[in-house]
C-alpha cells in the first residue's frame, strides 16, 4: 500500500465524515450461515448468529462470504469467530458489553419483536440506514444518521 498516492488524494477538509463501527450485522438472511458447510455457524431461535467453536472445521468460507468483513479466524482457538451479540449477557438480563460500555451511549440494544419497545420506538423516530442493503442480507443492526454512501 506504500505506492498508493494517499498524499495527493487526501482532501484537507472533508465535507462529511462518519465513524462507522462495523460489527456483525446479525443478518436475517446471513450469508455466513448459508455457506457454512457443517452447520457450525447458525442463527439462534432469537435471531443472533453464533459459531460453534467445537464444530467449526476452519474452512474460512464464512470469512469470504461476510459482506461486512466481520468474520475472522480466531488465531488462538484456530476456528472461525464472530461477535456473539454477547449472547451470554443478553440471556442473563444484561446489555451487550459494547452497549453498556459505550462512553457516549451511542449504541442501543433491544428486542425487535417488541413493537412498543424503546428500540422500535427509536427506529420509528429516526432516519435509519442499514449497510449494503442491495445484498438482501436484511441486517438487524441499524445505523442512525449515516449517509447512504457509507457501505
Amino acid at each position: 500500500m506504500t505506492d498508493f498516492p494517499l498524499e495527493e488524494t487526501r482532501v484537507e477538509k472533508p465535507d462529511k465524515s462518519f465513524f462507522v463501527p462495523k460489527l456483525c450485522n446479525a443478518c436475517d438472511h446471513s450469508p455466513c450461515v448459508q455457506v457454512c458447510p457443517v452447520g457450525a455457524t447458525f442463527e439462534t431461535p432469537d435471531g443472533a448468529v453464533l459459531v460453534d467453536p467445537e464444530y467449526c472445521i476452519g474452512c474460512r468460507y464464512c470469512i469470504q462470504a461476510c459482506p461486512y468483513g466481520t468474520r475472522f479466524l480466531n488465531p488462538i482457538t484456530g476456528v472461525a469467530d464472530k461477535c456473539t451479540l454477547c449472547y451470554h449477557r443478553i440471556h442473563n438480563g444484561q446489555q451487550p458489553a459494547c452497549v453498556e460500555n459505550c462512553p457516549t451511549q451511542a449504541r442501543l440494544f433491544g428486542d425487535l419483536k417488541d413493537h412498543d419497545g424503546p428500540l422500535n420506538q427509536f427506529l420509528r423516530e429516526h432516519k435509519i440506514q442499514v449497510l449494503k442493503p442491495h445484498l438482501n442480507t436484511y441486517p438487524k443492526v441499524f445505523y442512525s444518521g449515516i449517509d447512504k454512501e457509507v457501505r
Binding site: V38, I57, G58, L73, A80
Partner: peptide, 12 residues
C-alpha cells in the same frame, strides 16, 4: 490441509 481443523473434515 487448508482446514484449520483438518480432523473434523468428516462433519461435511
Amino acid at each position: 490441509s487448508h482446514l484449520a481443523k483438518p480432523l473434523r473434515f468428516w462433519e461435511i
